[in-house]
């Protein structure tokens, strides 16, 4: 059960410092443009259909459906950490290869695209770490005015049973009570850089540090297990 709202996802994105660098998202059906969005810290802004595209320096992410049919996707699929926690279309960055792809994803902006893929790999490593324990608390903070957030993950057999945001009181008592047989608390210090590529690279090293520190913080408690929600 993913308890993160659309607003939570956007807050998380802001906390990771990824909203400050706008990009254009397009969906095409063959040659026809069927969706054109500018994605920035103000959210997504759809363009008037058929309007001439303004010349802009923004990197463009294109999802291409094979004309004349829209692509098909599995309805009840397990999704990656990236897709579960980040809002669309930012979650599309992770879709270029792997089981989540629906339509072909590409970008002509090589350095920008390569940076998103590096970030995807770091998120995959973080996800592996989260899957290694039944319960994970992930605390994310960033310099500046963005309030810190704590996320709760309950996983069984590499599936998320529950993802939600912890309120301030819950977050403050993290680690005090044994909640699961395998439990870990992770801290991620999100960086603040001036350009997208530097931001991504700093974020990747912050995730690496988090993973290294997390090795010491995980606990194993016998005979303690979280109540499992239906269905398994």
């Amino acid at each position: 059960m993913n308890g993160l709202t659309e607003l939570d996802r956007w807050k998380l994105l802001e906390l990771l410092g990824l909203t400050s660098f706008p990009f254009r998202y397009e969906e095409r059906l063959g040659p026809q443009l069927i969706r054109s969005w500018i994605c920035s810290e103000n959210g997504v802004e759809a363009q008037f259909p058929g309007a001439p595209l303004p010349v802009s320096p923004l990197p463009t992410l294109v999802r291409a459906h094979t004309a004349p049919f829209l692509s098909e996707a599995v309805l009840f699929k397990n999704r990656s950490l990236w897709a579960e926690c980040l809002p669309f279309p930012f979650s599309s960055w992770a879709e270029s290869y792997g089981a989540e792809a629906s339509g072909e994803i590409s970008s002509l902006d090589e350095p920008w695209w390569a940076a998103t893929q590096r970030l995807r790999s770091s998120f995959q490593a973080l996800e592996e770490k989260i899957f290694s324990c039944e319960v994970t608390h992930l605390h994310i903070e960033r310099p500046g005015n963005v309030p810190a957030t704590s996320l709760f993950f309950h996983c069984v057999r590499r599936k998320y049973l529950e993802i939600r945001k912890l309120d301030a009181l819950e977050a403050s008592s993290v680690g005090e009570t044994p909640v699961a047989s395998r439990y870990q608390a992770l801290h991620l210090h999100s960086p603040q850089e001036a350009d997208f590529v530097s931001q991504v690279d700093s974020l990747c090293s912050a995730i690496r540090k988090t993973l290294e520190a997390g090795v010491q913080s995980s606990l194993h408690r016998d005979n303690v297990s979280l109540e499992t929600r239906l269905p398994l």
Binding site: T5, L70, L75, F76, F88, G103
Partner: peptide, 29 residues
């Protein structure tokens, strides 16, 4: 879960139906 493989005929619905928020313009069976 077992009902998803029942029968021969499929319905096609927007994939985004089961997500909160926007999604790619895809269909699911």
């Amino acid at each position: 879960g077992w009902s998803l493989s029942l029968g021969e005929h499929c319905a096609m619905v927007p994939s985004a139906l089961l997500r909160s928020g926007a999604e790619a313009l895809c269909l699911s069976r």
